[in-house]
């Protein structure tokens, strides 16, 4: 049959497609098992089993060979929450996540509002602004390491010329944090930008036309039309960015190594160093579960408030 050659054939595609899942299921079947089994097997082995094992390992101490040594109950948790290093890591992670998350969205909103109207040439700039979207953390790290290098980098030399004494930002706790925030914002902007652009463009022109008739100022239009219309997208992006930034790893590994003075030893990185550097799997597992709790909460929050908009639009 030639059906697939033209799926848009109006004879075949009715204008009103019913959306109910139940309605479209014409016969009950056991075939579902075969369709689901491959995914379920992989998920069981590489997602559910490891989550359970992480929980179990968090109750054990680890010996020098990386083997579980003895059951210690919840003392790993007691230890990490009384460890100033872990608490510092948590606090710094939150500072980073919030600064970088808000920064990303603010920059993306600024860029999107600059190119949202249908002026000629805006298409080019849209492509340019979106182009940081798929750049990997490793490449971004190398690019920025060069920029911030104290003796040869453009920014490093600029800092030196304006008289900054410690122009090697990586060696300074605040400076290292700033670099990571800048890299994170730069990398994240493309994605948020595309989303916000879509949201801005989907605000019907009629609304503004009506507002013009009513004699609203542009300030009123922004606050009474634009903001309410894009706020669901803003909220969705905020949660997504926050979740993503909690998982920041590559840039830390390549730019700061968690330092100086643990200023950038964020939680996802600490899990890695404790597990694969210090081979203390028990401690690392309990830290990993704290990370899981934070991310699971954020994701649940997102599902709860954006489920309809995002998935069932």
């Amino acid at each position: 049959m030639e059906l697939h050659k033209n799926p848009d054939n109006p004879l075949l595609v009715p204008s009103t497609a019913a959306a109910s899942t139940k309605g479209r299921t014409l016969r009950k079947t056991n075939a579902a098992l075969w369709f689901l089994l491959p995914s379920l097997v992989i998920l069981a082995i590489f997602t559910f089993y490891p989550m359970i094992m992480t929980a179990i390992e968090s109750l054990f101490s680890t010996n020098v060979r990386g083997e579980l040594a003895q059951f210690v109950g919840f003392s790993n948790y007691a230890e990490i929450f009384s460890d100033p290093l872990f608490l510092k890591s948590l606090v710094n992670t939150f500072i980073f996540v919030i600064t970088a998350g808000l920064g990303t969205i603010a920059l993306a909103l600024f860029l999107a509002s600059m190119v949202s109207d249908k002026l000629r040439g805006n298409g080019f700039f849209r492509t340019a602004f979106a182009s940081t979207m798929g750049i990997s953390g490793a490449v971004a790290s190398v690019l920025f390491l060069f920029l911030f290098n104290p003796s040869v980098g453009v920014i490093g030399l600029l800092l030196k010329n304006i008289g900054v004494k410690q122009n090697n930002l990586v060696a300074d706790p605040t400076g290292a944090m700033i670099i990571l925030v800048v890299v994170s914002i730069w990398m994240g902007t493309g994605f948020s930008f595309l989303n916000l652009l879509g949201a801005l463009q989907s605000v019907p022109d009629d609304y503004y036309a009506v507002a013009d008739l009513a004699g609203w100022s542009s300030w009123q239009k922004t606050w009474k039309i634009t903001v309410p219309m894009v706020s669901p997208t803003l909220f969705f992006l905020l949660v997504v960015e926050i979740i993503g930034k909690f998982k920041t790893f590559t840039e830390i590994d390549l730019i700061t190594g968690g330092g100086p003075d643990n200023a950038t030893n964020f939680i996802a990185y600490k899990v890695y160093t404790d597990a694969f550097g210090n081979r203390n799997f028990g401690i690392a597992a309990s830290e990993a579960l704290v990370l899981t709790a934070i991310i699971a909460f954020a994701t649940w929050f997102q599902f709860r408030f954006t489920e309809r908009k995002v998935y069932y639009k």
Binding site: S39, L43, I45, F46, T47, F48, Y49, P50, M51, M53, T54, E57, F246, K247, F249, A268, V271, Y272, A275, F276, F281, A284, A285, A288, L289, L291, T292, I295, A296, T299, W300, F303
Partner: peptide
């Protein structure tokens, strides 16, 4: 829902057992 749940679990928390597997 089971599929849904996996989206809430960060891969970072699964690396230790996955490495062992």
């Amino acid at each position: 829902a089971l599929f849904l749940i996996t989206m809430m679990l960060p891969f970072e928390a699964q690396i230790i057992p996955n490495f062992q597997t």
